[in-house]
Design a protein around this nucleic acid. Structure first.
Ligand code: SF4
Ligand code: SF4
Lengths: 140, 140
DNA sequence: AAGTAATAAGATTGTATTTATCCTATATAA
DNA sequence: TTATATAGGATAAATACAATCTTATTACTT
């Protein structure tokens, strides 16, 4: 019952990128150092984020990574889903899964509510919110 | 980001036991058949539930398993915690885990809220609630 | 007392997932 | 054309999960 490490890495990567967000490309190595993440694994993570359209990348000199959309529009839920795919805390909560008990299974129902409650929380906060509070803390 | 299969097995096992709950011992084989669970794995699951005090077991002839407490007092969250231990959807939400970033990490905060929201839902419903609704469905 | 029926407990296996790391390819700017 | 940066594929190591097997141990029955 855990998020993958990669999900948290992705959140913190995007958080780091949100601090710039004026179109400049930040190198993955710099992000890895700033956030203390394994750089090669981070690159893999960025590939996924790029494919799902959350970041843009540029190879070669002066290359790097930047947000593809405004940090105000990316929620933590977006990031987790980008990395792990659609969340299903029990197999039967996945779209394709079929269980014979499901029509009159109240367990399914409860788990669905629990999952929704969790995702709702993750969907409340955007990258912009997090960065803002982060900066506040530094100022004080 | 999934519950273990064992957690759901445990819930359904206790649900089955809740249908009787007049002190009689039900055999694990019967539960396994009723709920379509792998019987040996179910036995392992029951061992855990017995150690955590949710059920009582009796060996030998006329033996079996029964609830140790009233189904009104067992929530789904209780069952999940009994099987998986205290939930932590991210390592840093575990009691013993120490992360240097934690003091000013807003990610931690969000994840904590998300987890609490999920557990709150799982804590709303008791075994008694589920069985009651289950019976309703059958009557209709 | 012997035999049968049930769970307890521990070891072990098989599988899947997670978390990386390595290597080569490709793009880009200087 | 060279140095630099990500892309992508393969693979490895570690961990966790799900299930099974075997050998106790307990308790009723005859
Ligand atoms: S039995 Fe219920 S909770 Fe379990 S997989 Fe089927 S629908 Fe979901
Ligand atoms: S960086 Fe934040 S979210 Fe990640 S483990 Fe540390 S405290 Fe938790």
């Amino acid at each position: 019952m855990q998020l993958t490490r990669q999900s948290e890495y992705a959140i913190r990567t995007l958080l780091e990128l949100s601090k710039y967000s004026d179109g400049e490309f930040i190198q993955s190595r710099a992000i890895a150092i700033q956030q203390d993440l394994p750089v090669q694994f981070l690159n893999k993570t960025v590939q996924i984020l790029a494919r799902t359209g959350l970041v843009e990348t540029r190879r070669g000199m002066q290359g790097g990574i930047r947000l593809a959309v405004k940090p105000e529009t990316i929620t933590i839920a977006d990031v987790v889903v980008a990395i792990e795919g659609k969340i299903a805390i029990n197999p039967c909560l996945a779209d394709d899964y079929h269980c014979v008990n499901r029509p009159n299974c109240r367990v399914h129902e409860i788990l669905e509510r629990a999952q929704s409650a969790m995702l709702a929380e993750l969907d409340k906060e955007t990258l912009a919110d997090l960065v803002r509070d982060d900066n506040n803390e530094r100022v004080i």
